[in-house]
Amino acid sequence: MVVFDKPHALTDAPLHYCPGCTHGIVHRLVAEVIDELGIEGQTIGVAPVGCSVMAYNYFNCDMIEAAHGRAPAVATGVKRANPKENIVFTYQGDGDLASIGMAETVHAAARNENITIIFINNAIYGMTGGQMAPTSLPGQVTQTSPYGRDVNHCGYPIRVCELLSELEGPEYLARVTVNSVKNIKAAKAAIKKAFQNQIDGKGFSLVEVLSSCPTNWGMTPQKALKWIDEAMIPYYPLGVYKDRSAKEEAK
């Protein structure tokens, strides 16, 4: 009896991600959820520009490559083309979603667009070799903050879930991580809920995943997972930042 295997929604293409990069884990979780909800045939994924730019080769559902930062707008178009037939998700990095694409993110949330966004927060621009991201932590050394991010010079990292939770629009906002088996299970549950919300027509659901970047953080894969606990989670606390229907049920 097979207990664990590659989900059908993932293709057989080898992932190009660096050794130990947790992008691969999140890809698998999304694919497992798509399998479990039985929606691969209706799902359309929108890949960003960044490390996951070639995500369109890794998912077996129809995929679309969006311009940098524009995935939520592309997804809006795709969803509004066939809202009843298709399940639409975007998979985006922190530069894509919180820097160049911030307006698209905020407005898709404000519209409560019925799409699911998987937001990978690894506090760095990975694909281009390790530059400072809008989520890079104070003091974090990157290629474009070589002396450590100086908040007086270039400001503070953005907490996206908290930022969007102020909006009336979005249905579900949660921050999770994948640096341990326990956390992976919790992350999967959040991702599943985010997709289920879309199936139920509840609207904009975003899951922010604190993810590692061993190569550009200059750490071993193991140390990088620890750094998520030691440095990222204190600044980006895990948890559910908005869950409209749960709040309504609680009334």
């Binding site: 664990f4 590659k6 884990i25 088996v181 992976i184």
Partner: peptide, 19 residues
């Protein structure tokens, strides 16, 4: 015992677990 912790942590779906 096939707990699949290893496969869960693997970013590249290398490990298939059967009981």
């Amino acid at each position: 015992v096939g707990c699949a912790f290893c496969a869960t942590m693997c970013p590249d779906c290398v490990i298939k677990v059967e009981r």
